[in-house]
């Protein structure tokens, strides 16, 4: 595949996995949690590097899962001690992120791992770091890992679709039916962590939040059905990832920035134009259904 082909494929994979996870992040009202995890995985990546002295995707994935889970556990713990949810997220993630930044700056030396890269990602480097896959030949490592992560995310979401749905909509009922709500919460946090770290190379810690939240928020405006919202969000994710790439090469600027910008444009279009919840339809459509 061409150099550009790999970049577009990688971007599309980021769009789909972030789009799907984003739907549940929004419906679970955990957008802030995504922001937190996208930063704390940095600590996981650095720690994994310091222990193994290897900059491989797999080590980082494990490090990120641990960091993501630690974030979720710490936030829950502080919250249970009476600290407000948003405050505990703020305290936990800035602290863990700061430790990560300090470790990068002081311990990793001149390895290809710097704050700028972690925050902004660099999708143009993706096609150069390849690995040998049987049958497929030379495949960029980031693209391969993203495919695996996407497969895991899709299998987990589909296999436990109704459990995700009920724990998201009504956790109390779910618990009373014997569905392990807390376990599912941590599994979900794990999925968010691996999605985040796998998307890291392509878009970086800050922009991955845009990819997680904005396409899902836009999809929410177009439909009243969860399954359709998931599909739409994935489509929006792909559109903004690919659109962002072309915007960037057109005006010669940051790719991850352009992708995030593209998600914003899609959201704006949805916000203005969506037939159900859009800005325009609110003025055109007469109010027929009085809500309580």
């Amino acid at each position: 595949m061409s150099y550009e082909g790999w970049i577009l494929l990688t971007a599309a994979l980021v769009g789909i996995s972030c789009g799907v996870m984003g739907v549940f992040l929004i419906l679970r009202r955990m957008a802030m949690m995504a922001d937190a995890i996208s930063h704390t995985v940095l600590l996981g990546i650095v720690t994994a590097y310091l222990i193994t002295r290897e900059l491989s995707g797999w080590h980082m994935l494990v490090g990120a899962i641990i960091a993501g889970l630690l974030t979720a556990v710490f936030v829950q713990w502080l919250h249970s001690l009476g600290v407000q949810q948003d405050a505990s997220i703020g305290v936990v993630f800035t602290t863990l992120f700061a430790i990560g930044v300090i470790m990068i700056a002081t311990k990793t030396g001149n390895v290809h791992l710097d704050v700028q890269h972690a925050l902004m990602g660099e999708i143009t480097f993706v096609p150069w770091q390849t690995m040998e896959i049987p049958l497929l030949g030379e495949v960029p490592q980031a693209t391969f890992i993203l495919s695996i992560v996407l497969a895991i995310v899709l299998v987990m979401i589909l296999a436990f679709y109704k459990e995700w749905k009920i724990t998201t909509f009504d956790a109390a009922l779910a618990a009373s039916l014997g569905i392990p709500v807390m376990l599912m919460h941590y599994v979900f946090m794990t999925l968010v962590s691996i999605t985040t770290v796998a998307s890291f190379d392509a878009v970086g810690a800050i922009m991955v939040v845009a990819m997680l939240i904005t396409p899902a928020a836009a999809a929410y405006l177009w439909t009243d059905k969860l399954s359709i919202m998931l599909v739409l969000s994935a489509v929006f994710g792909v559109l903004s990832a690919i659109g962002g790439y072309y915007i960037a090469s057109w005006i010669d600027t940051s790719i991850s920035g352009s992708m995030a910008f593209a998600t914003g444009i899609l959201f704006l279009i949805s916000f203005i134009g969506s037939p159900r919840h859009g800005f325009i339809s609110r003025y055109i459509r007469p109010v027929t259904l009085a809500k309580e």
Binding site: L27, R29, Y220, T223, L226, M229
Partner: peptide
């Protein structure tokens, strides 16, 4: 009031 009635479902 304990659930989000804007949840996309019927």
């Amino acid at each position: 009031g304990s659930v989000d009635w804007d949840f996309p479902t019927n």
